[in-house]
Simulated assay, not measured.
Amino acid sequence: MVRFRSRRSQSRGPVHPSNSPARREHQAPHLAYVMVRIGAVDIGTNSVRLLVADVDEKERLKTAHRMGEISRLGEGLDRTGVIDEAAAQRTLDCLERFVHEAEYSGASQIRVAGTNAFRVARNGREVADRYAQRIGYPVDILTGEEEARLVFLAVMSGLSAPHGRSVVVDIGGGSTEIICGEGERGTQLISLELGCVRLTERLVRGDPPADQELEQIRSHVREIFAEKLGAFDDTRMDRAVGVGGTVTAFGALDLGLTKYDPSRIENHLLSRERIASIEKHLCSIPLNQRRDLAGVSRGRADIIPAGAVILSEFVNRFPVSGVYVSTRGLRYGLVLSEARKVWRPQGEPVGN
C-alpha cells in the first residue's frame, strides 16, 4: 500500500472568489464576450503539467499560466507492476502545488487526469483515489482512446489552418498515442504501450546507449507499429504533428535555442533529415552531455534516446516530409473539453 506524508488536515475543494477572472465579461458599445478560466493538470508517467487558460465560446484559448515538472511517477513500474511509494509522493507534492497554483490563478473549475501509469499499475486506482482525497478534486484515469482524442483536440486547436488530413503523434513516458483525422475530428486513434521511461528501463543499460540496445528499441517499435497500425490509412496526409517532451526538445535543438521558448517552437517544421541527424547525436553522447543541451530538461535527458527512436520510426512509417512541433499536449485538451461543457452543455456544435 502506498502511504503519503500528511500535509493537510482536510481536502480542499474548488474556489470561486467573487472577483475571480474565471468568468469575465468585456463590454464595448457593439461587442460583448465572456471567457471562462479553467485549470487542468495532466499527471503523466514522467512529468506533471499544469495549464490555466481563458476560453471563450468560440474556443479561442489564451494561456494564463503553465508549468511542468519531472516527477517520474512511472519509475520502476515496468519491472514491478506497481507505482512506487517514493515516486507517488514526489508526484503528489508536485500535484498539490499545481492545484494550488490553479486555484490562486482564479480557475473556476479544475480538471485533474492521469494517464498510462495509472492505467497499467495494479495500484493505479488506489493512488488516484488517495490523490483525489488530498487535493479535493477527482483524478480521472483516462483510457488510451480518451487520451488520444483529447490530444488531437489540443493539437488541432493550435494550428492556424487545421484543414485537410493530419496524423498526430504524442510520445509520452509510458505510452505513445497516434491519431489520424480530417480537419478537427480524429477518425483513427490508438494508444501504444511504447513510452520513453518504459523502453529505457527495459532495454538501456549503457551510457550512451550501445548500438545493440538502440537496435533492440528500434526493432521493438517497428514490431508494435507493424502489428497495431496496419489499419491506419496513411494516404493523402497533409501534415504530421508531434507533441510531448521529446518532440519539443527536438524543436529547441533544431532552432538552436539557448532557452526554451514555446512561442518559437510552436508549429516549427522538423524535416526528416533533421530528425535523423538529431536522433543520431542524442543517441551518441553520454548523459552528462545530454543534460547540458538547451531544450532537453535534466529530468528527460536519460530517456530521450528512446523517444528519439520512436519519433524517427514514426516518420519512417508515415509518408510525410517532416513533423510540425506542437506544445499543446493533453492539458490543453483537458481545458478545451471542460470549456465545451460550459459553452455547449447540450453538446451542440460551437457556432450553431
Rank of each mutant, 00 (worst) to 15 (best):
M67L: 10
M67V: 03
G68V: 07
G68S: 11
E69W: 04
E69S: 09
R72V: 10
R72Q: 09
L73V: 07
G74C: 02
E75L: 10
G76C: 09
G76K: 07
G76Q: 08
L77C: 12
L77I: 13
L77W: 04
L77V: 12
D78R: 10
D78F: 08
R79N: 09
R79H: 13
R79E: 14
T80I: 10
T80E: 14
T80S: 15
T80H: 12
T80N: 13
G81L: 00
V82Q: 10
I83A: 02
I83K: 00
D84E: 15
E85H: 06
E85S: 11
A86N: 07
A87P: 05
A87K: 02
A88S: 01
A88Y: 01
A88F: 04
A88K: 00
A88H: 00
A88T: 00
Q89F: 01
R90Q: 03
R90C: 05
T91M: 07
T91L: 09
L92R: 00
D93L: 03
C94D: 03
L95A: 09
E96S: 08
E96P: 04
E96V: 15
E96F: 06
R97V: 03
R97F: 05
V99F: 04
V99W: 03
V99S: 10
H100A: 15
E101M: 11
A102S: 14
A102C: 12
A102N: 08
A102M: 12
Y104V: 14
S105N: 14
G106P: 01
A107T: 01
S108Q: 15
S108H: 13
Q109M: 14
I110S: 07
R111K: 15
R111C: 15
R111S: 15
R111F: 11
V112Y: 00
A113N: 03
A113G: 09
A113L: 09
G114E: 05
G114L: 12
G114I: 13
T115E: 08
T115H: 06
T115C: 05
T115G: 06
N116C: 12
A117T: 08
A117N: 04
F118T: 10
F118L: 15
F118Y: 13
R119D: 07
R119L: 11
V120W: 00
V120Y: 00
A121P: 03
A121F: 01
A121C: 00
A121W: 02
